[in-house]
């Protein structure tokens, strides 16, 4: 996986790292028992301070996504299927809410939205 950092998003760097690693785990890009890049290696690659990556990994460990094995590194823990589903569901909800807001604002009807949904679902996106 690749971590891409934004300088201007206003989100602290350790938070960005956490979010991206979390996403990768929840979406299955990182699987159970995968080894994360070393704290120092990641810090060097991203050109950030070691304390930053240390903190990100520590928080991820506390949240139960990874486990730090002394002398070896951080391993991805088997993901909680329920948690992953919940996260995905939340994302779907957010996107739908956004779509509905836009629809209402521009006077598009529920029927039109449902039609679009069916169309898109059958397509190969």
């Amino acid at each position: 996986m690749r971590v891409v950092l934004s300088n201007r998003s206003g989100v602290p760097i350790y938070e960005q790292i956490k979010q991206q690693v979390r996403q990768a785990i929840l979406e299955g890009e990182l699987r159970a028992d995968d080894l994360l890049p070393s704290i120092r290696g990641l810090a060097q690659d991203l050109r950030v301070s070691v304390i930053t990556t240390t903190r990100a990994y520590r928080d991820l460990e506390e949240e139960g996504f990874v486990v730090n094995v002394q002398g070896k590194g951080c391993y991805v823990l088997p993901r909680d299927e329920a948690l992953a589903r919940e996260d995905a569901l939340r994302k779907v909800e957010d996107c739908l809410a956004e779509a509905i807001k836009t629809a209402r604002r521009c006077g598009i009807t529920r029927a039109e939205v449902a039609e679009t949904l069916d169309l898109l679902w059958s397509e190969d996106i």
């Binding site: 120092r40 290696g41 810090a43 060097q44 050109r47 070691v50």
Partner: peptide
């Protein structure tokens, strides 16, 4: 800055 990062890659 890059050189400093490279330097501390070694713990």
């Amino acid at each position: 800055r890059n050189m400093l990062h490279d330097f501390v890659a070694d713990e």
